[in-house]
């Protein structure tokens, strides 16, 4: 369901709920006004019937009418009650979905990307959505693959993840142009793309280096000087502030919350290889190890 449909459903259900409550209230008010009046009518008729047997039919009719009216009210109220429950379910469901889709939630979703990219970077990343990236081979990007992928996976929201996966596999990251193209030709909104792509660790919005370096910034590592490690690596790899991959696209630097080996703090992981009890100097050495292994 699209947002517009949801919005329409919510409005309609809300209107029905209000109408139902209005009916119930009106019913109650009318009943409480009517009851004493009916009582009076019946009493008067009962007095009359003492003299005139002909009034009996009228009294019978009156009592039947009152009984029927009360019964009808009960049935009606019950029906309205069930309608209210059904409409409340629709209303709540629709509103909850709408809220889940709205912008603040997307920001929350992107927060989940915290282990992958730091807060500062996230801010920057949004900017890069529009501006050109230094490493970005924007001009050379062939968007034909996006169309192909859409043709293969479909245009619905449910296809978002497979599409992103396909695009990531093809380009090795999620280029902005490709994302824009994706938004144009599918039902997927930019917010959804931002939410999904920033949530899952496997999606990247910038080109990725050959090796991923995860520097632990958990409490223990932080205390043990993780910041210095990160800074030293940035300096070494000449990665400017706001970016995470060096110019050679060899290393991509990540700051993660915890690598789960606090006793080795400070820790980093280069791909699957872990190095602990680091100092700025040994950290650089750990990278060099990998560099050396690299068959140049």
């Amino acid at each position: 369901m699209t947002s517009a449909q949801l919005r329409r459903a919510a409005w309609a259900a809300g209107a029905v709920i209000l109408a139902g409550i209005a009916i119930l209230t009106a019913d109650w008010v009318i009943a409480s006004i009517r009851a004493p009046r009916d009582d009076r009518t019946v009493k008067a008729l009962q007095q009359k019937v003492k003299e005139d047997p002909a009034v009996s039919a009228k009294l019978d009719a009156e009592q039947k009418r009152i009984t029927d009216a009360r019964r009808a009210r009960r049935i009606r109220d019950r029906a309205v009650g069930w309608t209210l429950i059904a409409c409340s379910a629709i209303f709540l469901g629709a509103v909850k979905r709408l809220i889940a889709r709205s912008a603040p939630k997307a920001v929350e979703m992107s927060r989940i990307a915290a282990p992958i990219s730091t807060g500062k970077k996230r801010k920057r990343k949004r900017k890069t959505c529009c501006g050109a990236h230094a490493h970005d081979p924007a001009a050379a990007l062939d968007l034909g693959f996006v169309d192909e992928a859409v043709a293969q996976h479909g245009r619905g929201r449910e296809a978002a993840i497979p599409l992103l996966q396909a695009i990531q596999q093809h380009y090795r990251y999620l280029p902005d142009e490709a994302m824009r193209r994706l938004c144009e030709i599918t039902d997927i909104t930019p917010a959804e793309i931002a939410g999904t792509s920033s949530f899952y660790g496997q999606f990247r919005s910038t080109p990725v280096g050959k090796h991923i370096v995860r520097v632990c910034h958990g409490t223990a590592c932080h205390v043990a000087g993780a910041r210095q490690i990160s800074d030293e690596l940035r300096r070494r790899l000449k990665i400017p502030e706001g970016f995470d991959t060096d110019a050679d696209r060899m290393f991509t630097l990540e700051e993660v919350a915890c690598l789960g080996c606090c006793s080795l703090a400070p820790v980093l992981m280069v791909d699957e290889h872990t190095a602990g009890r680091l100092t700025p100097a040994t950290a650089a050495a750990a990278l060099e190890e990998v560099e050396e292994k690299e068959p140049a």
Binding site: R111, I112, A114, P115, A257, G260
Partner: peptide, 12 residues
């Protein structure tokens, strides 16, 4: 504790 990220999403 050994799985958490301190991201605060649960609190929110």
């Amino acid at each position: 504790p050994d799985k958490e990220l301190d991201c605060g999403l649960c609190t929110e």
